Computed example of a mutant assay.
Amino acid sequence: MASSSQQSQPFDGHFTVLDDTQFHIRGRTLFFVVVLFTVVLLVTVLLLYARWVCHSHPNTSSSSNTPPNAPPQSQPKGLDPTVIRALPIVLYHQSVRDLEAGGGGGECCICLGVFGDGEKVKVLPNCSHSYHSECVDTWLATRSSCPLCRAQLQAQSTTT
């Protein structure tokens, strides 16, 4: 009989009884919950608005005076191939000062290769910087400036 009395008694564990009558949100806690919810909501709305603005107006800039239906302006292009071919090619000669200083001679700042005595180099007209012909031709096909000092060579291409 003792075993039947043990089985008939209900288990009095605090985990089985869900009593939420003592759970109340009051005062400061309620205020902080409302403020936190409002902040999260505002940040979400601002991020969605920023995303919408970026996706709906991708080509706007503050300095652009082009009409909205105009095609986007392309980046500055390189020189015309005939202008690139017309640049002077000279034979490189080491100066006496370079030899006395122990230097290996001039250097192509594009490939970082050292010019050998008697090697053909291309000289840019505005700044007189020298480069290997292949190196500077590739550069000038996409840009219209000196690789070293950024002197513009565009004026040369408009005269031809």
Results as ranks from 00 to 15, higher is better:
residue 41 L to V: 00
residue 105 G to C: 09
residue 123 V to K: 00
residue 18 L to R: 06
residue 133 S to R: 12
residue 127 C to W: 13
residue 12 D to C: 07
residue 55 H to Q: 11
residue 141 A to E: 08
residue 5 S to M: 13
residue 66 T to Y: 02
residue 120 K to R: 11
residue 40 V to A: 01
residue 120 K to A: 13
residue 100 E to V: 15
residue 29 T to E: 05
residue 104 G to P: 00
residue 26 R to K: 15
residue 100 E to K: 13
residue 108 C to F: 14
residue 113 G to W: 02
residue 132 H to F: 06
residue 67 P to S: 12
residue 19 D to A: 08
residue 81 P to T: 03
residue 100 E to F: 14
residue 22 Q to W: 07
residue 79 L to C: 04
residue 42 L to S: 01
residue 50 A to S: 02
residue 121 V to K: 11
residue 154 Q to D: 05
residue 121 V to D: 00
residue 82 T to H: 10
residue 96 V to C: 04
residue 2 A to F: 13
residue 90 V to S: 05
residue 84 I to S: 08
residue 73 Q to S: 09
residue 100 E to W: 14
residue 26 R to W: 06
residue 42 L to H: 01
residue 134 E to S: 08
residue 106 G to S: 10
residue 99 L to D: 06
residue 95 S to E: 06
residue 157 S to F: 01
residue 108 C to E: 10
residue 7 Q to E: 02
residue 37 F to L: 04
residue 59 N to S: 12
residue 1 M to A: 03
residue 11 F to I: 15
residue 126 N to C: 03
residue 26 R to E: 10
residue 84 I to M: 06
residue 1 M to D: 04
residue 18 L to S: 08
residue 37 F to W: 03
residue 25 I to V: 11
residue 37 F to R: 00
residue 20 D to W: 03
residue 149 C to S: 00
residue 115 F to A: 05
residue 34 V to Q: 02
residue 18 L to T: 06
residue 118 G to F: 03
residue 134 E to I: 08
residue 53 V to D: 02
residue 29 T to H: 01
residue 66 T to Q: 09
residue 78 G to D: 02
residue 49 Y to G: 04
residue 8 S to M: 06
residue 45 V to Y: 02
residue 109 C to W: 10
residue 10 P to G: 00
residue 61 S to T: 10
residue 112 L to D: 07
residue 16 T to A: 09
residue 91 L to M: 13
residue 28 R to N: 12
residue 91 L to Q: 14
residue 20 D to N: 11
residue 106 G to K: 11
residue 5 S to E: 08
residue 65 N to V: 06
residue 47 L to F: 13
residue 97 R to G: 07
residue 57 H to T: 12
residue 93 H to E: 08
residue 22 Q to N: 09
residue 73 Q to F: 07
residue 88 P to W: 15
residue 112 L to I: 05
residue 153 L to H: 07
residue 75 Q to C: 03
residue 157 S to H: 11
residue 117 D to F: 01
residue 140 L to Y: 00
residue 36 L to M: 07
residue 160 T to R: 14
residue 24 H to F: 04
residue 4 S to D: 02
residue 88 P to L: 14
residue 32 F to I: 15
residue 106 G to W: 06
residue 146 C to P: 09
residue 110 I to K: 05
residue 70 A to Y: 03
residue 97 R to D: 11
residue 148 L to S: 03
residue 47 L to C: 07
residue 101 A to G: 02
residue 25 I to S: 05
residue 7 Q to P: 13
residue 144 S to F: 01
residue 77 K to G: 12
residue 134 E to R: 12
residue 135 C to I: 10
residue 140 L to W: 00
residue 22 Q to I: 14
residue 57 H to G: 04
residue 86 A to P: 03
residue 19 D to M: 05
residue 65 N to R: 14
residue 103 G to Y: 14
residue 104 G to Y: 04
residue 31 F to I: 07
residue 3 S to M: 11
residue 86 A to R: 14
residue 86 A to V: 06
residue 151 A to K: 08
residue 8 S to W: 15
residue 130 S to C: 14
residue 96 V to I: 05
residue 33 V to Y: 11
residue 7 Q to I: 11
residue 133 S to Q: 03
residue 30 L to C: 04
residue 74 S to W: 10
